[in-house]
């Protein structure tokens, strides 16, 4: 069970939240990118072995949407990787 930090409520049980999927790259201009990159954007979901940025919705709480970084190896909530900050 995760304790997820809500910016409004503070740390709350994972059971109060609904998973909103990984944060995805911004939508590229389909007229500029190659077909392969466009298909990648449409179909490939971020699924790294390590830190992944995710959306979560405090649905059974204050209703806030938030993002966290979670390490898929340990299931721990972690700081954003250095190269992202």
């Amino acid at each position: 069970m995760l304790l997820i930090p809500c910016p409004f409520c503070g740390a709350r049980s994972e059971s109060e939240f609904i998973y909103g999927g990984p944060v995805r790259a911004a939508r590229p201009d389909p007229n500029v990118v190659s077909d392969a990159d466009w298909v990648d954007y449409l179909t490939v979901v971020p699924n790294p072995l390590g830190p992944v940025q995710e959306h979560w919705w405090h649905a059974r709480g204050c209703g806030e949407w938030l993002t966290i970084w979670r390490d898929t190896r340990t299931h721990d909530i972690v700081e954003a990787p250095d190269e992202i900050e």
Partner: peptide, 24 residues
């Protein structure tokens, strides 16, 4: 699932959380 200890959830506390898995 809330921490309802009075040092965390004081006399003036009110929040949405869960009761048996339902929003409450």
């Amino acid at each position: 699932p809330l921490d309802l200890h009075e040092t965390v959830f004081g006399a003036d506390a009110v929040t949405y959380s869960e009761l048996f898995g339902l929003k409450a």
